[in-house]
Design a protein around this nucleic acid. Structure first.
Lengths: 225, 225
DNA sequence: TGGTCACCGAGTGGAATTCAATCATCCTGG
DNA sequence: CCAGGATGATTGAATTCCACTCGGTGACCA
């Protein structure tokens, strides 16, 4: 799903979805202008009601210009998604730098804070929940989540000495899915985000990841069946 | 209230999305036939590649017939979603009846089992993850989750003496969102469902709902900054 | 001044949706 | 019991909407 893709260097590959690399300067402006327009339209009509004509008109361009840069409609959405993910990663880095981290869960909290902040301020940010249900090998949501989990695992291992391993990565994958669902729920109706769900999300993450090492989960397992 | 209460009484209202209530008998057959066709197509091409022509052809009907019963394409998907939800609730009731419940978490486990079972056997069941991102007030996914949470809360309160209240309902809403996300993840690639995620889902639910009454969450809260 | 780069927007094709005509079933008076 | 009108149900060609193409035009550069 959509917290997908923290950190990482494959931003070059992510732009493979543009048809023509911009050569002249105005092209770059066009590109980001198109994405800005798309973001605005996403906020207005949602990202499945969006039409190429809307994007073009909003960007002050013509239909053809959209297709000069993107092979098709969903490529625009993918690009917008990518940009949102990149900005999310940057925000996470900023949050991490601006906070004094006393424990690993402060890092996790920063991730949630970054996500919520962008949801509130970045136009069209709900595109992060965009999930292309077809065989597009690039920018797969699950792959994103998996990648994100691995990166976050590295951070936690290196900064806070959590034990590395597949178990941690799996746990983080699960955590990402849960957080994604709860935060999407928080913003489903409320444009500012339902604080109750946001707070519960933080608590759930902490509880879940902490339980990994506490005997709590194990005692439950022992009484199972 | 009995376990049968999970079924709810708004099944009549759920059909408001059809244009014309069927009067003659063949109409009812048509309606379910259309949904069966839609379910089959959903499994073949996914629910965003689906076309009205595919549904009509599969059902042995003409295009016009589809539009006689449903105002537009997504209304068909909504109806299919509704039917899936209804069958899910029925399955939950069946599971609950067929199991000997020694504790509330057996009930929760039954819910997971029912969901997984339908994912595996019911054609087009992945429609339950269909989320229309626009202002369709009826058949809203969040409303569904909320409704289900309330019903489940009633069952748990009456059968297992859990303390009723908004807190329990909220907890169940959160649990539903998490379970939904994890199970969707389990079936995202694997048509049989990734057992690792399914098992983790059960564990997470139990841990989370149990933590509600255990001092574990509270101790975490106490150490929060 | 020739060669790209960018841009435009009418045109094409396919899918969604409409609607007037037709068929099927029900109902009622004789 | 049956004709035949009334109403439900079905049809598919026509229309509309929208993604996407492409030949033509201007903008930059060398």
């Amino acid at each position: 799903m959509s917290l997908g893709g923290l950190l990482g260097e494959e931003t070059g590959a992510a732009l493979q979805q543009v048809r023509t690399e911009p050569i002249q300067q105005r092209s770059a402006a066009r590109l980001s202008g198109l994405l800005d327009a798309a973001a605005a339209v996403v906020d207005e009509v949602g990202f499945d009601r969006i039409t190429t004509a809307m994007i073009a008109e909003r960007a002050g361009a013509s239909i053809g210009t959209v297709y000069r840069y993107y092979p098709d409609r969903v490529a625009v959405l993918h690009a917008l998604h990518e940009r949102a993910v990149v900005r999310f990663r940057q925000r996470v880095v900023d949050e991490l730098g601006a906070s004094t981290l006393t424990s690993w869960w402060d890092a996790v909290d920063c991730v949630v804070t970054a996500f919520v902040g962008l949801y509130r301020s970045e136009p069209g940010f709900r595109i992060v929940n965009f999930d292309d249900r077809d065989g597009a090998p690039i920018a797969d949501a699950v792959a994103d989540a998996d990648f994100f989990a691995r990166r976050l695992a590295e951070v936690l291992v290196n900064e806070f000495d959590l034990p590395a391993g597949d178990e941690l990565i799996f746990r983080l994958e699960v955590a990402v899915e849960m957080a994604d669902a709860l935060l999407a729920r928080a913003f489903h109706t409320d444009p500012v985000g339902d604080e109750r769900f946001i707070a519960e999300c933080r608590l759930v993450l902490r509880n879940y990841l902490d339980g990994f090492y506490s005997p709590h989960a194990l005692s439950l397992l022992a009484t199972a069946s």
